[in-house]
């Protein structure tokens, strides 16, 4: 958690966004929120929907926690934040059910899962409760979008290999304008059933994690070779 432990007064938005997207990604670096991640990523559309819902909750929770940060005392902060997050999720759940019912039918099962998403409490606790609303908003956007792309990538990979489609039923989620997203990549495809079943989630997450490590390590090597400093510590750092 590089940013959250840094200086509170100076706000570096670029670091915030890079942290959320890659360096300190919720799922791939902090290894948080794996329960909803594994549960919903059976298709790219599900991943996208869950990612969007999480993003909305994360933004609202960060904003509220940031506004209340001078009132809340350390002793009761955890119950206060949990109550706030749970009620935001409940409200989102009700609004979706009432006004976007088609979407709710797709996502309804997963919305309550967001409460159990420790990434949200994590961001509220480690960032929003120490920063003013604007950086807290930026952090929520960065972390939420970082989680979103991981969900979509894992969902897409599992859907592609498991059922041969991409973004099936996306128009249910985003409206009829997005029907072009629904692609049958491999028609009459029998599919690798394993990837749609729960083990597939673990496998894909494992592949993505090792891919990220690999990219990080190559980036480090490149950096080292351009600086022409061959330090043995760099390889150790790359394998925490």
């Amino acid at each position: 958690m590089n940013q959250s432990d840094g200086n509170v007064n100076s706000v570096d938005y670029k670091t915030i966004f890079m942290d959320g997207w890659w360096d300190n990604n919720v799922a791939l670096s902090q290894m948080l929120a794996l329960c909803p991640l594994l549960a919903v990523t059976t298709s790219a559309t599900n991943g996208l929907g869950m990612g969007l819902a999480t993003l909305v909750v994360l933004i609202s929770a960060n904003l509220v926690a940031s506004v209340l940060r001078n009132i809340v005392t350390p002793q009761v902060r955890i119950p206060v934040f949990i109550v706030l997050i749970a009620s935001i999720v409940t409200l989102v759940d009700m609004w979706l059910n009432a006004w976007m019912h088609e979407l709710y039918k797709v996502l309804g099962l997963f919305i309550p899962l967001i409460v159990t998403n420790c990434a949200i409490l994590g961001r509220v606790e480690s960032f929003a409760s120490k920063n003013s609303p604007l950086p807290a908003l930026a952090d929520a956007m960065a972390m939420g979008l970082g989680f979103l792309w991981v969900l979509v990538i894992i969902g897409a990979a599992r859907e592609l290999l498991g059922s041969g489609t991409l973004f099936a039923h996306a128009s249910l989620l985003l409206g009829p304008h997005f029907e072009w997203l629904e692609i049958t990549v491999i028609p009459e495809y029998q599919g690798i059933l394993l990837l749609v079943l729960p083990p597939g989630g673990f496998l894909m997450l494992g592949f993505l994690l090792s891919l990220k490590r690999l990219i990080d390590r190559t980036a480090r090597y490149k950096q080292d070779s351009t600086a022409e400093t061959v330090s043995p510590t760099s390889t150790i750092e790359a394998n925490p």
Binding site: V72, Q75, V76, P79, V80, V83, L84, S87, T90, L91
Partner: peptide
């Protein structure tokens, strides 16, 4: 602490009721 927690809970309950 207890007043704060109770106050937040009351506020949140009101919002949920309105929702």
């Amino acid at each position: 602490h207890s007043t704060l927690l109770a106050g937040i809970c009351c506020m949140v309950a009101t919002f949920i009721l309105m929702g």
